[in-house]
């Protein structure tokens, strides 16, 4: 999962213009206004590409996608690689 974390960080910095110095695993991406909700599909596609699995759209919620840590935890449940799997 550290690969996914790194990939998410790189995407946020290069494509969404998030400041590398203020971004940590718990930075609020959508509720904090760093990523516009219009960009969410792009974000979901990126995660799907990284994990090689589709994300059920009903799971694209703030609880699952609002920070790098939440995305990684959600992906673990999706891939059976971690708690809740």
């Amino acid at each position: 999962m550290s690969d996914l974390k790194q990939a998410l960080r790189a995407k946020l910095v290069t494509e969404f213009g998030v400041d590398r110095n203020t971004l940590d695993d718990n930075t609020k991406l959508f509720s904090g206004g760093l990523v516009d909700s219009l960009g969410v599909m792009d974000f979901v596609s990126f995660v799907e590409h990284e994990i090689g699995k589709p994300v059920p759209i009903a799971h694209v919620t703030l609880e699952n996608f609002d920070s790098i840590a939440q995305i990684v935890a959600f992906v673990q449940t999706l891939t059976g690689n971690g708690k809740g799997a």
């Binding site: 959508f30 909700s37 759209i57 799971h59 694209v60 919620t61 996608f65």
Partner: peptide
């Protein structure tokens, strides 16, 4: 609200 769309689809 329309925070992220998953809640609406769900």
């Amino acid at each position: 609200g329309f925070r992220l769309p998953g809640e609406i689809f769900a």
